[in-house]
Write a protein that binds this DNA or RNA. Structure first.
Lengths: 149, 149
DNA sequence: TTAATAAAGGATATTTTTATCCTTTATTAT
DNA sequence: ATAATAAAGGATAAAAATATCCTTTATTAA
């Protein structure tokens, strides 16, 4: 559905939102380990996210990534857009250049409803909402270790 | 959503179903032109589809591709499977190895419904059904030329 | 039986995505 | 000021997807 880059991006912003504070920023190393992603590739993605203003970053000792608590919540679609994948849900499922309600491809109608719903999810769901559910243990980003007896 | 290879595959089988008859088979050239796809790449894809038994083919003069009228209708998911993309709808949207109803990723539930419905569409819709709608002018594979006055 | 035709198959090339490495810049602590 | 640290940025490498080319095999028509 998304590219690896986009998957890592969403996971990274989630971790930064959950664990990054202005007084204790997260390093690339920490983030990559936490989301189990290749470190240098993750660094590139964080560069993009930082440039796009979706995460805050500071260089140097004690530097790293965090979310400005004054900043507006970040929607999933903002991240998808930052990773230049906005068209995942806007292109024809059969790859036709011309495909629309008036000139639909053979599966246009069947696919349309679901694309729209998903688009809505991406627009409405913010990283902050998802981070909350993660904190509450309702959802997961990594395999929850079996607790010792 | 699908790879180019899979898009071409679906479009190719549709064209073969609509226009290919045992007594008048379709050449690779004809198919590639019809679905506006790169010829040699399309040839490769047709090889796969033929090997998987989703289309019939004959070599030599007057050879080409057609659909055996005695064969069972082909579902979209059969094509997707033949192109080895069955997992498009079975993998976690955030790329997690472990993601399930009991250990859901942050967007598992939101995405699940979408994936299931789409999976259902792929299983239920056959190329024959879609070809019928194409023939009836209800759907399109190429830009319909504006008719002259 | 031979020549022509058209798909099958194998090898190779190009492009995009994924991933890595190295140098530069900003920031902090000493 | 200087050294250490950590992200930013640029250049490069590896892998996968897309695309092309050439030879072989099967079939048909002459």
């Amino acid at each position: 559905m998304f590219t690896k880059a986009c998957e890592y991006a969403i996971r990274a912003v989630l971790i930064i939102t959950m664990k990054g504070k202005e007084e204790q920023k997260l390093s690339i190393q920490h983030i990559a380990k936490e989301i189990d992603s290749p470190l240098p590739f993750t660094a590139k993605i964080l560069q993009t996210l930082s440039r796009e203003g979706l995460v805050a970053s500071v260089k140097g000792p004690n530097g790293g990534f965090y979310i400005d608590p004054k900043a507006k919540p970040v929607s999933l679609s903002q991240i998808v857009k930052a990773m230049e994948e906005e068209n995942v849900l806007n292109t024809c499922a059969l790859g036709l250049k011309e495909c629309s309600d008036t000139q639909p491809c053979p599966i246009h109608h069947q696919v349309k409803a679901y694309k729209q719903k998903l688009k809505h999810v991406l627009q409405e769901k913010t990283i902050q909402m998802l981070a909350k559910e993660l904190n509450e243990g309702k959802t997961f980003l990594r395999i929850s270790k079996k607790r010792k007896k």
